[in-house]
């Protein structure tokens, strides 16, 4: 199957870097820090594909580089090296890390959607919930007010935001509602792929369960591919067909979700699985 997204040797370094840590793979590095120049290696040598409609999980402890990957794909963070190809842009032949600012905004606004754990990052708190979603349609070039309103209300209904709350400002929403609006915002322009960064982190379990059910049904209904970051193996088991396990900014293991959970290969993966699955 032709990949929708191909990430090749993605690297993100905080600091100037030196030949030691800029090499692939970084030499002499036991963890996230280059022993020669003390630069932080947020991620290095990251390569993977996402095929249309699949849900790919990225797991690993805090600081292992999971969110860095999502932000590099979404072009909100500029990568130090590597390439990313996206099937709906130049038929997957041009590296999206090299595009100009205008193309970058088009990719961010129309082709990708992102849902953050922290709604402060994903929502504009100065405008209402429906305004947040409508804004995305405006930047995508829609001008017909009635059409925008119809689409936004349809989607907000689908993500189960109570209609009486459409016009409220995001700070008046519960954590679960904020995530629902973020999900609607990510989906409104019908992107082929959405990126989810711990979308249920910090929510209580019953709200978490309902948001997960929503994400699960949306991935099927909208046939949208997802890359989902989580440290919760139960969440990953429920949603993802394949997963990538990260440690110290590098991929240490990848595989079918049930394979990684039932037969983890690496020491860290074994610890992760045995500490979270009863």
């Amino acid at each position: 199957m032709t990949p929708l997204l191909s990430v090749r040797n993605l690297k993100k370094i905080y600091g100037r870097g030196c030949p030691n840590c800029l090499s692939s793979p970084p030499r002499e590095c036991q963890d996230n820090r280059c022993p020669r120049c003390a630069a932080i290696i947020a991620c290095s040598d990251i390569s993977f594909d996402v095929v249309p409609g699949e849900v790919l999980g990225i797991v690993g402890e805090s600081g292992s580089g999971k969110s860095t990957i999502l932000n590099c794909i979404n072009l909100t963070l500029s990568a130090t090296g590597g390439q990313i190809f996206y099937g709906h842009f130049a038929e997957g032949t041009r590296d999206i890390l090299m595009v100009d600012a205008q193309t970058r905004r088009t990719l961010q606004n129309i082709h990708f959607g992102i849902v953050y754990q922290n709604p402060q990052l994903g929502l504009n708190f100065q405008v209402s919930g429906e305004g947040n979603v409508a804004e995305r349609m405006l930047v995508a070039g829609h001008t017909h007010f009635g059409q925008i309103q119809t689409n936004v209300h349809q989607l907000l209904q689908r993500v189960e935001l109570p209609p009486s709350r459409y016009k409220d400002l995001p700070n008046a929403y519960s954590g679960g509602m904020q995530q629902r609006v973020q999900i609607a915002k990510a989906l409104i322009n019908e992107p082929a792929i959405i990126l989810l960064d711990e979308p249920t982190g910090g929510l209580d379990v019953s709200v978490q369960a309902r948001i997960l059910d929503l994400i699960r049904s949306i991935s099927r209904e909208f046939k949208v591919a997802m890359v989902m970051v989580s440290h919760d193996m139960q969440v990953i088991r429920l949603l993802c067909q394949r997963i990538i396990v990260m440690k110290h900014g590098r991929i240490i293991e990848s595989g079918l979700t049930d394979r990684v959970i039932d037969d983890p290969r690496e020491a860290y993966t074994q610890t992760l699985v045995h500490s979270t699955i009863q």
Binding site: G255, R259, D262, D263
Partner: peptide, 9 residues
């Protein structure tokens, strides 16, 4: 059986 199904490597 699990190896055939790739539930195990």
């Amino acid at each position: 059986i699990k190896c055939i199904y790739r539930n195990y490597d």
